[in-house]
């Protein structure tokens, strides 16, 4: 078996005395897509923040591409789409993408290409504060995919997206998976997640209660995971 793209081993995280994550272990390889499920406050976002290098684990080890998530080489290969859109309201769309292109060492022409792909080229020079919600979300998607990341970390990516942005994101994620990229996404949108996922994990009160391949039952009945593996 090849080296996993992402390996989480016995990770614990505490907020004060409260255990946000307890002994979480799993791994993913190239081309795999994990739907990380769990109720609000279960620990999904905490797990994703540790994977993105935004937070450290109290115990245990996280490896991305065989490295610590805080290594620049690992971070260069991550695409992050969190709760916020991660773009600056006072800057224009092209200025936003150009900044992130510079930070990731990507050519500025790629920023223009992504504005075309996300159908924002006509507003390239308009400040983001004038954008509709859907346009802002598409710009966030462009920002996350700009540097062609090998690992996509998505925190509830379909929440509050308009239909155009959902279609765009689903298309990009399908292409990424087909190209051998690894995807991990937390979500409450079970149907969209199950269509993309190769693996499913369920977190409850910081504990990983299920991790395994997505089965046909899960695809037909998205609530199956909660009913079968979750606490009543």
């Amino acid at each position: 078996m090849s080296v996993p793209v992402l390996a989480v081993e016995h990770v614990y995280k505490y907020f004060g005395d409260y255990p946000a994550l307890r002994d979480v272990s799993f791994s993913l390889h190239g081309g795999e897509c994990l739907a990380l499920l769990g109720r609000n406050g279960a620990g999904k976002t905490t797990m994703l923040k540790i994977l993105a290098g935004l937070s450290g684990a109290a115990q245990g080890e996280v490896k991305l591409f065989g490295d610590s998530p805080r290594q620049a080489s690992a971070r260069r290969r991550i695409g992050l789409l969190g709760h916020g859109i991660g773009v600056y309201d006072e800057l224009t769309a092209i200025e936003n993408l150009t900044i992130f292109a510079q930070l990731y060492g990507v050519s500025k022409t790629v920023a223009r290409e992504w504005l075309e792909r996300t159908q924002l080229a006509h507003v390239a020079d308009s400040p983001v504060r004038e954008f509709s919600r859907g346009m802002r979300q598409r710009l966030a998607v462009a920002r996350a995919f700009l540097h062609n990341p090998s690992l996509l970390i998505l925190d509830e990516p379909f929440t509050a997206l308009d239909d155009r942005a959902i279609a765009l994101l689903q298309g990009l994620l399908s292409d990424a998976k087909a190209a051998g990229r690894t995807i991990i996404m937390s979500t409450h949108q079970l149907r969209e997640a199950m269509e993309l996922a190769t693996h499913v994990a369920l977190i409850e009160r910081g504990k990983l209660v299920h991790f395994g391949p997505r089965t046909p039952e899960m695809l037909m009945d998205p609530g199956y995971v909660y009913r079968t593996f979750g606490a009543v």
Binding site: K49, A52, G53, L54, A72, S73, R75, R76, I78, L80, G82, H83, G84, I85, G86, V87, Y88, D89, F100, L103, Y104, G105, R143
Partner: peptide, 15 residues
């Protein structure tokens, strides 16, 4: 802080 830009910056390869 608005739009969680700090998270995106910290997650980028910039030290």
């Amino acid at each position: 802080l608005p739009n969680d830009c700090l998270e995106v910056l910290i997650a980028s390869p910039v030290s």
